[in-house]
Design a protein around this nucleic acid. Structure first.
Lengths: 149, 149
DNA sequence: ATTGCTACTGAAAACCATTTTCATTAAATG
DNA sequence: CATTTAATGAAAATGGTTTTCAGTAGCAAT
């Protein structure tokens, strides 16, 4: 097990052990630009490590979400999807545009700046008015892609 | 069966029959300000009409969503939740603030105007750039409420 | 290196919201 | 009122996710 990956510190700092399955799962996520489901990840990991089980994939994803290394999304197709958090790996912050017919997902980074600005303003207002400690937001567009429209 | 409810036309216009279960389900939804799950609705309907089944509730909710009479939301607690579309019944358009600890949901209408304006601008931009026919958006905030923080 | 502690693991079973199946019933139309 | 066809309820199936449990492997202290 190599201890030189960028996420090792993050793991140990949270009291989690560094294991082969966890490293394999993070590898898969850091090498794709797709929005993988737990099963997608399981299948990808399975090619290199056939002994790693789906249960472990689910458990690991839970941990990764909880320590903020990955994000979990619901694109309304009945399964959760995961992607690496953008600050982890030189990825750009983006939002999603989802085709409700074929499931295609477009990551867009245009328009983001205005969105972020407004979101921060709203978060501040909500936080004050309702005394919430805001931890996150979700903004997503749905529609029909060029092929499906 | 009274044929004088505001939704009768909407139903018939879409080729759906007006039935007791459908009316009962819409009644429940129009009398609450909560975000009910399919089971919540089933239980509420069940008090007055014990013969109406959960299956029918699910089927009716599907229809209501598809004709735009209600909205379906995912607040990440493992079940879908439903509420009457705001244009149906003098309800104000709002977005949601969700407590990730206790599940409390705050409907907020402040800040909405700016949000809507930005969303429309973004929709226009996305629609042009990616050739999507945008049909909807989702914007939601997560955090810890005053009791849970 | 070896040990001991404890977290981690895989397989199987359980879970649970939602969907499907199918035989029966009831709404709408004329 | 009869006919057509959609709607219904019960039960079974589905399928993503979680739990259980006995065995395994990280890792800190020796």
């Amino acid at each position: 097990m190599k201890n030189d990956n960028w996420w090792c510190g993050r793991f140990r700092g949270c009291g989690y052990k560094l294991t082969v399955p966890r490293e394999a799962i993070l590898d898969v996520l850091s090498l794709t630009d797709k929005h993988l489901s737990a099963e997608d990840i399981y299948l990808a990991v399975h090619k290199k490590y056939p002994t790693i089980g789906l249960t472990t994939v689910y458990r690991t994803l839970d941990i990764l979400v909880s320590i903020g290394l990955i994000y979990k999304f619901d694109f309304c197709d009945g399964r959760a999807r995961f992607e690496l958090a953008e600050d982890s790996k030189g990825k750009k912050h983006h939002h999603h545009l989802v085709c409700t017919n074929c499931g295609r997902i477009v990551d867009y980074t245009d328009f983001i700046d205005d969105e972020i600005e407004l979101l921060q303003l709203t978060e501040k207002g909500l936080s004050k008015k309702y005394n919430f400690k805001i931890t996150g937001h979700l903004i997503q567009f749905y529609g029909l892609c060029d092929k499906c429209r």
